[in-house]
Design a protein around this nucleic acid. Sequence first.
DNA 1: CTGTATCCACAACGATACTG
DNA 2: CAGTATCGTTGTGGATACAG
Lengths: 115, 115
Amino acid sequence: MIIPKPGLPVRGSKTGQPIMALLDLLGRSWAMGIVWHLYKGPSTFRELQDYCESISPTTLNTRLGELNKCHLVERCLEGYVLTEYGRELFELLEPMGSWARHRWAKSFEENDRKK
Amino acid sequence: MIIPKPGLPVRGSKTGQPIMALLDLLGRSWAMGIVWHLYKGPSTFRELQDYCESISPTTLNTRLGELNKCHLVERCLEGYVLTEYGRELFELLEPMGSWARHRWAKSFEENDRKK
DNA sequence: CTGTATCCACAACGATACTG
DNA sequence: CAGTATCGTTGTGGATACAG
């Protein structure tokens, strides 16, 4: 398991620019889904598995380990929960998600209409 | 070449959530570097190749094609340039980059000190 | 200069079975 | 319930040589 730490080589940046490490981490399968779901409150392994319908236990466990080592998720009595960093990040992600949905996605619809 | 379009399956999301498509696109090698460099102004293929020191022509061309089909980059007389969408996205990315550098990266330094 | 065509190596992920 | 161990498939990207 390669942890995308700022300063070390990551997918897309040999010098490990923090922003690239972040994009690497969050771009992996289900990472965003996990953060999104945990923002609502703590969840167990099984609950997350049900939420991410087609995720394999291998991948879910790997992802949780990565998010944990990157200080975004931590263990708790109820299973897993977002850290302070995790919550901050989620809130930064919202404007991007909003832009992606409302502006960017529209650009593809326009393109489709022209064809 | 698999283009990460919102609505179609992408790395990390089978339903192609727009935010996941975006993270997929930007998480690929050198994508951010290209956007970052082009934010300063138009560039030729060769200039981008020099800027992204170790990138192969194959990858650079693939990446430019993806960014173009996703409406973030377009061709111009001077080579390549950011579109209106591209500039909007860059500006949304800055707060995240800032957080990654100043808050998130610090969390790893703290961790290192403890060990 | 600007790409394109091949080939190769490796990391990511799902499927599955199994252990604590 | 909560993971871990293996295996096979596939995408990603570098290297290189070559074409427009």
